Computed example of a mutant assay.
Amino acid sequence: MPPLQSYSITDKGLQRPNNEDCYLSTPDLNLWLVADGMGGHEAGEVASAITRDTISEQVEQGNTLEQAILMAHTNVMQAIESGQGGEGMGSTVVALHNSGTDYDIAWVGDSRAYVWSITAEGGQLDQLTTDHSYVQMLLESGSIAAEEMETHPEKNVITQCIGSFDNPNIQVDTLNNKWRPNQWILLCSDGLTDELSNQEIAEALCHASSIEDAGDKLIAAALDHGGKDNVTVQLIASPQQHNIPRTTLMQSPWIILALLAAFGLIAALAWWL
């Protein structure tokens, strides 16, 4: 089976002096990931790079994503203890490993994975991951409603990350799904989801002509909305890609009915006048 088609892009944003995000795109290993470092200059980028490199090495050795992420957690903590990077540094991660007919996703923190299913009418966006965040915990406990999450003052507080000594036994969440025809998997840092709602992400994807165009559109939209954080986007296409004729405006029965009604109104007005 040929390597999956993919596209990766990152930007430091408009307000940060450096980029603490990083990504890995290794089609030959069937491995992709986004890591969002934290801890400031010469710390966050160190943590995310250790996370990326460790997971790549571990998967190449035949370990699962979960095992690879747990090893990355250990390596970041050891780096802190040896004086590499800085105290308090850490990283989130979301990773995808392709197995041919299906794929595994694993994550820690609030970097996300979505699936975009292309249809004749446009497409459907579904969030695959659940954030390890304080507002998610409040939502699950019933303390806040879903619509309050985006405006909550502590929306960016995460409950676990790679390299945290406060939580040495992190819980790696995982999922396994079958590939479906005409799907794209989107991996991203919170620099995207803090700026764009799921609806806005879906709209950008709906207007994209390719995964490259989709990635560029998402980055541009995040920057247009303020670009307050580093932003990283990866898109991985399903191995089952088929041409789907998109419904044009004139092919839609609702548009045709609306146009007929409009023409009828114009004719009636012309007759009346």
Results as ranks from 00 to 15, higher is better:
41 H>S: 07
270 A>K: 12
228 K>Y: 13
179 W>D: 01
208 A>K: 02
142 G>K: 11
246 R>T: 13
46 V>L: 01
165 F>C: 00
196 L>D: 05
48 S>G: 02
48 S>T: 01
190 D>V: 07
202 A>T: 10
20 E>W: 04
199 Q>G: 11
264 G>R: 05
266 I>V: 15
207 H>V: 01
258 A>C: 05
233 V>K: 05
62 G>M: 10
211 I>T: 09
166 D>C: 00
49 A>E: 15
160 Q>D: 04
53 D>M: 07
214 A>D: 12
119 T>N: 07
250 M>Y: 13
43 A>R: 06
47 A>Y: 02
184 W>E: 00
273 L>I: 14
77 M>L: 11
106 A>R: 02
129 T>H: 06
51 T>W: 03
135 V>Q: 08
255 I>S: 03
76 V>H: 03
246 R>W: 06
128 L>N: 10
139 L>I: 09
52 R>F: 08
133 S>C: 09
223 L>C: 05
126 D>L: 10
115 V>G: 05
174 T>S: 07
184 W>Y: 11
50 I>P: 06
11 D>H: 15
76 V>S: 05
201 I>E: 10
73 H>K: 06
116 W>P: 05
186 L>Y: 05
263 F>M: 04
272 W>A: 09
81 E>C: 00
72 A>E: 10
55 I>G: 09
218 L>A: 10
201 I>R: 03
85 G>H: 12
148 E>Y: 01
147 E>M: 10
187 L>E: 09
260 L>Q: 12
108 V>H: 03
39 G>Q: 08
87 E>P: 07
45 E>S: 09
159 T>S: 10
235 L>A: 07
94 V>R: 04
90 G>I: 03
190 D>Q: 02
107 W>M: 11
224 D>A: 15
113 A>S: 14
99 S>N: 13
17 P>N: 12
251 Q>V: 04
110 D>L: 02
237 A>T: 06
137 M>W: 07
227 G>S: 09
58 Q>R: 14
121 E>K: 09
23 Y>M: 07
182 N>K: 10
227 G>C: 11
155 K>T: 14
24 L>C: 15
30 N>D: 14
134 Y>S: 00
142 G>Q: 05
111 S>P: 01
103 Y>Q: 00
237 A>S: 11
52 R>I: 12
196 L>Y: 06
159 T>K: 11
59 V>L: 02
140 E>G: 12
132 H>Y: 08
136 Q>T: 11
51 T>P: 09
218 L>H: 08
273 L>K: 14
82 S>D: 14
122 G>D: 07
144 I>G: 01
230 N>G: 10
249 L>I: 10
255 I>L: 08
247 T>C: 07
18 N>G: 00
273 L>E: 12
75 N>L: 14
87 E>Y: 12
93 V>K: 11
146 A>Q: 12
43 A>V: 08
211 I>V: 15
184 W>N: 06
255 I>P: 00
71 M>Y: 00
247 T>Y: 13
267 A>Y: 12
34 V>R: 02
94 V>Q: 03
26 T>E: 15
249 L>R: 13
78 Q>C: 01
140 E>P: 01
143 S>N: 12
236 I>W: 05
78 Q>W: 03
46 V>S: 08
218 L>P: 13
3 P>I: 03
246 R>M: 14
83 G>M: 11
137 M>Y: 12
145 A>C: 03
196 L>T: 02
92 T>P: 08
252 S>E: 08
91 S>N: 02
167 N>F: 13
110 D>W: 06
